[in-house]
Design a protein around this nucleic acid. Structure first.
Length: 343
DNA sequence: GTAAATGATTGACT
DNA sequence: AGTCAATCATTTAC
């Protein structure tokens, strides 16, 4: 078993190997099993060490850290999994890192002190050095063991769903910077709140959000502030119709006139207009068409360019808006003629 | 507990 | 492909 957890010839290689191994789906299970078995078997430290790499040079001898390495790797992988959701785990991770650093500092100090001493022979020096490493390795193992226990307690205290959360809850509120940038842009462009692709990308970059989030934010914002093109058109036409109706009813101080049929036709405009109802033409043939009035515009809202070209769409506003006025005004004069003729 | 706010998604439209 | 409107899901405020 010791050979199984034997490290490579350097700490770096050990870490690299563990990283590669950790990608395997069975790695964690195997790790946990090994650690458990090592503890249960009380593996003597000497079995985990490799004399061939312990001594023989002036450089700092590498005391095999494999036993602790497996345990530490297991602990670190748990930290990685859990620290995102739990600040206490993150705190524990920080504590662990600090303590490890402290032990390693002490180890270095001890080695430095050793090197300053005079020994009768090389063997005595190696023995002393071996003891220093053994002492500090055990300290690390002890620390790792304690932190693992603490982590287990934390895991027990955590809600069951948060331990294995592959499907993290979607983060809700976009960051305040992004909101500020997009709100500012929207407020500056209330008359045409449609950022170009470049502007959307810029806002996404500056706000550290995705392009899709910017698009969705603006779509929601326009829709919820009634500032989409269709809604604005509808509001504008409603406003004008109200003015006309008010005028007809004599609310403006003029003599009231009986324009019931006109009101009916205005009502038809509302009911049949694509501004109010999708799919039907803006004008029906029983009402004077824009073409008959000498007004030429290509398809109004149905113009596909409108969606792709903000300016084109903007022009549509005017076109449809004018449509409404033209029809309303012409209808009034036309009906006026009719009523005059009939009476 | 409930309503409001908000980000995301979906289906339809051009 | 971009947009709209409706809707869902979740968080926040009360």
């Amino acid at each position: 078993m010791a050979s199984l957890i034997q490290s490579d010839k350097s700490q770096e290689e050990t870490n690299t190997g563990l990283c590669k191994l950790s990608a395997h789906p069975m790695f964690q299970d195997l790790q946990a099993t090994l650690v458990t078995e090592c503890f249960q078997a009380s593996v003597p430290y000497t079995l985990c060490s490799d004399q061939s790499i312990v001594g023989g040079s002036d450089a700092e001898p590498i005391v095999d850290p494999s036993f602790a390495a497996v345990q530490e790797a297991h602990l670190q992988s748990q930290f990685q999994t859990l620290s995102h959701d739990n600040p206490k785990v993150h705190e524990l991770q920080n504590f662990y890192s600090t303590q490890c650093a402290e032990i390693e500092t002490q180890r270095c100090d001890a080695i430095a002190k050793l090197k300053g001493q005079i020994f009768q022979n090389e063997t005595q020096y190696q023995t002393e050095l071996f003891e220093v490493h053994t002492f500090h390795d055990r300290q690390r193992m002890h620390l790792t063991s304690r932190v693992s226990s603490s982590l287990d307690l934390l895991k027990e205290a955590m809600p069951s769903g948060s331990i294995v959360t592959s499907s993290k809850p979607k983060s809700r509120q976009l960051n305040s910077r992004a909101i500020e940038i997009m709100t500012n842009w929207f407020d500056r462009n209330l008359d045409n709140p449609y950022p170009s692709e470049i502007e959307k990308e810029r806002m996404a970059d500056e706000g550290n959000v995705s392009l899709g989030q910017v698009k969705a934010w603006f779509a929601n914002k326009r829709n919820r502030t009634n500032n989409t093109k269709p809604k604005r058109q509808k509001i504008q036409v409603e406003k004008k119709l109200l003015t006309i109706c008010s005028e007809i009813a004599g609310d403006d101080g003029r003599t009231p006139k009986l324009y019931g049929d006109i009101i009916q036709k205005l009502s038809n405009i509302i009911n049949r207009s694509t501004v109010f109802n999708a799919g039907t033409p803006i004008l029906s043939h029983d009402i004077i068409s824009a073409e008959n009035l000498g007004y030429h515009h290509q398809e109004g809202y149905h113009n596909q360019e409108g969606y792709h070209n903000p300016e084109g769409y903007h022009n549509q506003d005017t076109a449809i808006f004018s449509h409404g006025l033209l029809v309303a005004d012409s209808t009034i004069s036309s009906s006026d003629d009719n009523s005059n003729g009939s009476t």
